[in-house]
Simulated assay, not measured.
Amino acid sequence: MAAVIETDVAIIGAGPVGLFAVFECGMLRMKCVVVDALDAVGGQCTALYPEKPIFDVPAHPTISAADLIGRLEQQAAPFSPTYLLGRRVERLARDGETIELGTSAGDTIRCKAVIVAAGAGAFGPNRPPLDGLPGYEATGAVRYLVARREEFRGKRVVIAGGGDSAVDWALSLKDVAAKVTVVHRRPKFRAAPETAAQLEAAAARGEVEMAIPYQLHGLKGDGSRLEAVVLATLKGEEREVPADHLLAFFGLTMELGPIAQWGLALDRHHIAVEPATCATNVDGVHAIGDIATYPGKLKLILQGFSEAAMAAHAIHPRIFPGEALHFEYSTSKGVPAAAWEAV
């Protein structure tokens, strides 16, 4: 339902950096609304690799993407953010000192500052050109991401693609699926050499079937329930692979969407910011995480976390004009009691 919401800061993007921005703003007594085009928080961590381990988050020698998002949600929870999911911000306007955002669901957000934490922008899967695709997408027979691998237990799964996602999920699902078939147009994969070698070894042991050199050619079923995937070579030779699910990993189509029309200074589809504050050239709008760029920028989650803190401190004077901000460490300042109750 469309709503009119008054808040201090609007955060566009509910990925890890956007979630940490809620915490940093909350520590400075600033309320946040978070908007994301996906139906769940987590951004690409949730949509693309929830079960993959991440190794460069401080204090976590290894942590799965899903667990990282869960902990960031827990960290943000004491500050009671409002989440508007399954919609994207389409409009930015000004009303005096107030910034007004409009979403695709008709919501209006009135705030004093905006933090764009939209990763690489709005993204969606590259879909294979197959007849009847929408019907199978609607039932989950054809998918472009894996949220829970348990959903594929005992199922016949065809995985198409030659990159990291295809190889990683083939290795992961072979232990739960009844059968995994990997479809690729050539023997060489674009995945990391180590995991590509693991896939080759799994195929040699009969744990994974390799359909090479084949491409997707068609879907067989009743329009919603999948029965088989039709493959074809470049020479037109066809074969059918019985399947309950097709996972198509052909990468993502990424774009800034309506954000590109806001007058922001762009640098190769990224938003140029001032490194010390993450401020853009549009007053009151900051950008952090993968979507932000400046000299020396590293596309690391941990750098995005730092940018969230810098943006929050830079925004504070807009929310509390004339109030001196005395920097305090969290160890001495503490956090709301609810944060400890949730641990």
Rank of each mutant, 00 (worst) to 15 (best):
P125C: 08
A59H: 14
M30G: 03
P78I: 04
L130H: 06
D67Y: 04
C111Q: 08
P53L: 13
A65N: 06
G135D: 07
Q44F: 05
A76D: 07
P61K: 07
P129F: 07
A66Y: 08
L84G: 02
R87G: 12
E73F: 03
Q75F: 06
A141M: 00
T103I: 10
M30H: 05
G18S: 06
V34S: 05
V4A: 11
F79G: 05
Y144A: 00
Q74S: 14
P61E: 09
G26Q: 09
G70I: 06
L68C: 02
L130I: 03
G70H: 06
E90T: 15
R71P: 00
G13K: 05
L48F: 08
G13F: 09
I109Y: 03
L68I: 07
T98P: 04
V35D: 03
V114Y: 02
R91Y: 06
A10C: 13
A141Y: 00
L92M: 14
V4G: 01
I5K: 01
G135N: 05
I12T: 05
P50I: 06
P16R: 01
I63C: 10
D56M: 09
G121V: 05
E73A: 09
G70Y: 06
P125W: 09
D8T: 10
T139F: 00
D131A: 14
V89N: 08
A93Q: 15
E90M: 11
I69W: 02
Q74F: 11
C45Q: 12
G132W: 00
E100S: 11
P81E: 14
A93R: 15
L85C: 04
I12L: 13
A138K: 15
D107K: 06
A21M: 08
Q75S: 12
R87A: 11
M27V: 14
E97C: 04
D56Q: 09
R88S: 13
G140F: 00
D67Q: 15
R91P: 02
E137W: 00
A118Q: 07
R29A: 13
A76R: 07
G26R: 04
R143D: 01
P50V: 09
P78Y: 02
I69V: 15
A40W: 11
L72P: 01
A10P: 02
G42E: 10
A122F: 13
P78E: 07
A141N: 01
R87M: 14
D95T: 11
G13D: 07
L28G: 04
S104D: 13
T108A: 11
G102I: 08
F23D: 09
